[in-house]
Each structure stands twice: as C-alpha cells, then as structure tokens.
Design a protein around this nucleic acid. Structure first.
Lengths: 225, 225
DNA sequence: ATTACTAAAAGACGAGTAC
DNA sequence: TGTACTCGTCTTTTAGTAA
C-alpha cells in the first residue's frame, strides 16, 4: 500500500494539471484560478505549485509573471500507481489494447529469457516454457503512455538471481494475447525507459502470426493486481 | 473534477481498510497499527477513525476496547469515483464484463426511453434510434459491485427535460455489446439502488439473441468518458 | 492490551502587500 | 493583470495520560 506522500490538495493539483494539460504539452494555469478550482486561496495555490516543483512533480517556466506548468514523469507515475492500486483494491481486472510494429531480430531478450532460473519461473508462473526468443514491438508514440501504465503496475513477479559471473535482476510479466495467441509481455522490474515491448510465448510468434519486420499487430495486455 | 473532500490520511485510511477487509466483511484494525501503517501516531489514527465514522464512511463496533471496522457504501463510492476519475484522466478505456439473467417484460423503461426528447439524444449520442423496449438483466449478486462502478462513472450524458405534466431526469448511457450485438446500458443519473441493468439497442434484443426470461447472457460494458 | 481526552507544539492557511 | 513573501490566525498533530 503506497502512502500518497502529499496532502490531498497537492494530489488534486496534479490531477487538475493533468486534466488541463490533456493533449497539449504543458498548460497555463494561474495561481488564482488554481485556487478557485481547489476552493482555496491564491496564496495556498502558489505554495502548492512551489512545493510540487521543488519535489520534482512539476516543471514550470515563468515568463512575464505567467506560469506554464508541466507534469513530470514522477507525477505521472504517481497518478498511474494510484490508479493501479485502486484498481487492484477494487478488484478490477483490466485489459489494455496496444498496437506496435514488429522490430528486427529475435530480440536482445533472447539471451536473458533463456537463463534456466528465469525459465523455471516462467513455467511455474505463466504455465509454459517460452520459445527461446522475444518478439520486439515498437509501440506507436501515441500509445507510449500505456507502457508507463505497465511500468507502474506490479504484474507477475519473476525473481532475479545471481550466477558466479553476474546478477540477473527481477523481471515482471503480464499475460497477453497477440492476435488470439497467448503470450506475455516481459519487462525489467527496474524502470527502464523504452518504447519497445518484449513478448514471449510458447510458440514462435513470428511464424505463427506470419509476421515480418514492420508488421503491425495489436496486443491485449492484462493488468490485474 | 471531484475534490477529494478529505485529507490524504483519511483517504489512505479508507484504502487500507478496504485492503484489510478484502473478502471478509469488516476488519479488526487497532489505532496503533493503523498509526504505524500511516506513519503517524496512535492518537491521530484514533481521530481519523472517529472522523470517518462521524462522516458516514465507516461503521464500527467497539467490543471490549477492540474495534471492528467496515466501509460503508459511501466510502466505496468514493474509491470507485476516484478510480474512474483517474482512469479517464489517464485516458484508459476499459471494458467490464457482466453476466445477468433476463427478466420478464419489455422493461418498465419502455415508457421512458420512448420520450421524444430522449430519443433525439440517443440518436445524437449513440448514433441510433433504439428499439422501443428495454431488456432488463438481473445481475448476479457476485457482480453487483460492478453496477456500483457504473453508477460512479459519468458515462454518456443524456439530458433531462420537462413537459407540461412532469419532469424527466437526466440519464446516462454506456456503450456495450451483448453477445456481439451493439447496445447500451442506461441508468438514471441520480443514484438508485438496483441490481438490474437496462439495455437498449437498435435491434429487438430478445429476438435477435433468442432470449427468454431466465436466459443468461454476458454483456461487455465500456467505461470511458 | 485497548481507545480517546486534553493541552501544548507544529504546521497550514490566507490577508496584506511587494514586485 | 501576474507570483509569492511575511506574519498573525486557525487547524492538525502528538505527548501525556485516563479509563
């Protein structure tokens, strides 16, 4: 259970800015109007903006005494986490539909997912031993935000481990369906910025789905708990 | 944009209790342990519980100095609203799947949905003029909670209006699919407690889907504002 | 063990105002 | 118009403690 590390006014402010920002990349919102929206004073609104900026939730530019605000990744992460947490509390299983373009190669993930220790866990937690290669999908930029959502969702945890040589970090998996074929999205648990999704499956997806580089497919990803 | 009418500690407390309650019907949570979870003092935790109880978010019984807590409907509504609001802010379109049993009659809604003023709006906002009857589905008790979720979601607003005689309140609609056939769930905007969902569609669903009273069908409802 | 009162300290808020 | 400082006031928190 995460603790919403801010007052509710601060939290609502992030939501308001997200709303005003919608589509655009930043919004102009005076402290007076924010105060009105929050039913508080201009002074308090001003302080909230200052606090949130100092704590890394907002970026702002002040030109000509007019401020322009933009949520940072940290703020979006907080909103997504809150959303996912409520979803799992309220027991909502949800599916999101993503569209991506098949990228070259078998995926650099091939080496990783073939480590015995991971494979055992895939078998245990997903119910199958995946084909030894990953299908890389470059997400449409317009859908990149959904990757954030996955990043902020716990998923199915695949534990990390160490060998003599090196350490393999924990990974998380999400059950998914690509054009009707069962598969899973895997990603490192540590946040890595990327617009590419890696899919694993029992089957060789490229062949099964007749894919080649540049093919466009859509994937239904399950976000649950 | 709703304003989260409570401090963040109060809000998080509702989440914590919802979590502890999970499955069960009420939970035992001492003020000391709540204080620890919230990183605050026992005294503050005590006051939060008192406040939330007074404001109708909690019911509690104190036996032998030990308290047992239960969230009220008001609290669940708040959590659902927050969830839905975040969902629409973060632009998550979501589908929930509901199962219900067909109930007798053409639905009492027939009279209402055939009012010209509503019909015009259905045409505008849903894209079709519905068949003049509603299909009533009694939801499985285990899924009744999902109706709450719809109730707390804005949906597609159908405005109310007045005639000489009387007033017709605002209604909301959710796009849906019943066994592959496009339809919509409609419900009054004012909260009414009911375990029955009303469906409208361009087609006469009973015939099209070969339904009779007692038939069981599942409906995919889109929650997305 | 509990819950919750009181009183004092800490913190949030907004009026006034500078820029 | 803006933002944001100071400072007096009001609110929230917690230590001590009772029951």
């Amino acid at each position: 259970m995460s603790l919403l590390s801010m007052s509710s006014l601060h939290y609502v402010t992030l939501k308001v800015i997200k709303q005003q920002e919608s589509g655009k990349n930043g919004c102009e919102l005076s402290t007076t109007s924010l105060g009105k929206i929050l039913s508080t004073s201009q002074q308090t609104a001003s302080r909230i903006i200052i606090d949130l900026t100092r704590e890394g939730y907002l970026e702002r530019s002040l030109v000509n005494r007019r401020q322009s605000l933009r949520l940072t990744k940290k703020a979006l992460d907080l909103l997504f986490s809150e959303y996912n947490e409520l979803g799992s509390l309220l027991d909502q299983s949800r599916t999101i539909s993503l569209t991506g373009i098949v990228e070259g190669g078998l995926g650099e993930g091939r080496y990783y997912i073939s480590r015995k220790n991971y494979v055992i866990q895939f078998q245990e937690k997903l119910g199958y031993i995946p084909y030894l290669g990953t299908l890389n999908l470059r997400m449409l930029p317009s859908e990149a935000i959904y990757i954030d959502r996955l990043r902020n969702s716990p998923g199915i945890r695949i534990e990390g481990f160490s060998t003599d040589d090196r350490t393999f970090g924990p990974v998380k998996a999400f059950r998914a369906t690509a054009e009707g074929v069962e598969c899973a999205v895997i990603m490192p648990e540590r946040t890595v910025h990327s617009e590419t999704l890696e899919l694993i499956s029992k089957e060789y997806l490229r062949e099964r789905l007749h894919l080649s580089d540049g093919s466009r497919i859509s994937v239904e990803v399950q976000i649950k708990e």
